[in-house]
Design a protein around this nucleic acid. Structure first.
Lengths: 348, 348
DNA sequence: CGCGCGGATTTAAGCGCTTAAGTCGCGGAC
DNA sequence: GTCCGCGACTTAAGCGCTTAAATCCGCGCG
């Protein structure tokens, strides 16, 4: 066993010696096989596998000044939206032969910064970032180093960066319209934290849908937060009303709230979902599964966002720094109908 | 705008010139600040931030022959088990100042191989791999390059590697014992594909729990596969029986089957869960959320596994190749009680 | 028989960093 | 007054690869 010390991995030089050729030839065999004669190629190949040679990427990228990978820093892998984004980005990266390296910030700003720095030092071709709030500093640092970067789901002024956003107004619109199409007329929009940009946009979308529909009325119910419990509280409040006073269709601004409402309604036997009240959530997050009924929801299409981001990044990577104009692409959300809303009436 | 070409990022040499010192001093400021005088340090620091210098990690690791990151290749990020593993590994890596790079194979063997190769070429300190079936080739290649690696959730003979496994027998045991403790006496174990090692182990665990308990009987129900529909089919079959002939507690070998059963029972009004029949799933996967009732399940403790793996990896990284003895650590699963089983009787 | 040619290979100059081995001054000990 | 030691810095030799330029060599041609 101690017979094979195998201290350091073999280098190209070792391969070259082993094959009786020069180091440049080995490099050529690997990178431009067409420049090397058949016979030599064979020998070198043999030497490579005999020695178990693996090209040292550090040296390679030092010599060429390029990398074949891009980095992606995700705010929270526990949230399926980000997993979807990773998928989409993967797709996009694959299409052009780039490797996607993932870093999970796990909701920790420091860690997000760590990864940003790591990717910066690793001189990746570019970075995809789904930033947490207050990520400005890290973003600007990266930008100032001239590294291509695109932001996902971060709608903030004054950012000089390509960005992929979801059309949150459309999210609200689709949710409300679905309710209306399934014959709900007393619509409620349940939300908190209106200063939060996505919340506000969804509200506007809901309002528009109701207005357009005519014949439907909209009630806006405020919550303290955006969590399950806030939904439960709303359900409780609804329980105090007479049946006629209750909405017959609810758009909750998050899946969690939606599930909370459904659970509250269900547990206290206040109303049947969707029999008495239909509920639509927003986001369609796989980790929000706390409710008693499968939730109809408007999904954010993380995969599309990821892919769009990868394409944007590529665009920036391929353009000389001066030339590039930052763009924002807005991804349209989609409705996923499940059990928490009545099926659309036949023939509609 | 074209005034600042900022072609390539500044190098240490640039910083050195800018600060009027030698390149070695710059390096020292960064790596061994105690060897440099206060004043010089200041100057260099200033130059660094003025130029926006970022150390080139490729060059660094080429020069030192080390990296500060380890790679992790996950079979499928859509499966929360792997997300949990990533978390755990992250934890473990953080603790010792290593950076964890993630690659998502997304159930694609080629992609898994790609990532393995990428990490190999990047000379990461080591690799954590949750392999898919038939990953032998990639594993051996990596091993033969002498790169430290530990496997997660891959119980296969003839692998020369540290491994982290879950105690699947315990999984079955815990599930069945929970049912028994909540007063179920006619236990059913629902599973398919017994040739699949985890399935078989869980079966053995269930059998042991029932045997130990005494007074309970075990029925083993076979399914074709391990999916939701297979559970639905079982529910249907149960519907044909008289109530007395039905089990009062079911261990399903996967969450999906468990949810299928619950859904089938519920939809066809065959039985109440947990009123008439309690159900326990295995795995506790967040993406399995198709059921009508929150599932009690035995969870695989992905986070613990990830952390254990990171520790094992560290152990191997710190030991001279010859010295290291491969080990296998087995993580004990845990029970998560939710709504699909009756609460334990008071006082038990 | 000498030339020019072109394909096959080698030479050598870096890429940006680390680090062992100097160099340089300067103050204190003898 | 000389010399040593020491702190603060610089020199220079790589790390393993890429690549442009140089070299080599066998051939067909005039």
């Amino acid at each position: 066993m101690p017979a094979t010390p195998k201290k350091t991995n073999p280098s190209m030089l070792d391969v070259a010696r082993h094959a009786g050729v020069s180091i440049a030839t080995v490099s050529n065999v690997i990178n431009r096989p067409e420049k090397v004669s058949k016979a030599t190629t064979e020998q070198v190949r043999a030497a490579i596998s005999e020695l178990g040679f693996v090209r040292n990427d550090a040296a390679r990228s030092l010599a060429t000044g390029t990398t074949s990978s891009i980095g992606m820093v995700l705010a929270d892998l526990d949230n399926s939206l980000f997993v979807d984004m990773a998928h989409g980005a993967q797709q996009g990266a694959d299409a052009i032969g780039l490797r996607l390296l993932l870093g999970n910030a796990a909701c920790d700003l420091d860690r997000q910064d760590d990864y940003l720095r790591l990717f910066d030092e690793a001189r990746v071709g570019g970075v995809l970032l789904s930033p947490m709030e207050d990520s400005l500093a890290g973003i600007e640092r990266m930008r100032s180093h001239g590294r291509p970067m695109v932001l996902l789901n971060y709608d903030q002024d004054g950012i000089e960066c390509c960005t992929v956003l979801v059309d949150n107004e459309e999210v609200g619109y689709l949710a409300a319209r679905h309710l209306i199409e399934t014959d709900c007329r007393r619509i409620a929009f349940v939300a908190g934290r209106d200063y939060y940009q996505p919340v506000h946009a969804r509200r506007v979308g809901v309002q528009r849908a109701v207005r357009e529909a005519g014949g439907a009325v909209l009630e806006e119910i405020d919550t303290d937060g955006l969590a399950f419990e806030d939904g439960v509280a709303v359900a409780r409040a609804l329980g105090e009303r007479s049946t006629a006073q209750r909405p017959d269709g609810i758009v909750a601004v998050t899946d969690d709230i939606a599930n909370g409402i459904a659970d509250g309604l269900h547990a206290a036997l206040i109303a049947e979902v969707p029999g008495d009240i239909s509920i639509v959530g927003c986001e369609d997050n796989r980790s929000a599964r706390s409710g008693p009924v499968a939730l109809t929801a408007v999904q954010l299409e993380g995969a599309k966002m990821g892919q769009a981001a990868a394409e944007l990044l590529l665009e920036e990577m391929n353009n000389p720094a001066g030339e590039h104009r930052h763009r924002t692409v807005v991804v349209r959300p989609g409705l996923v109908v499940r059990a928490s809303t009545a099926a659309a009436p036949l023939g509609v």
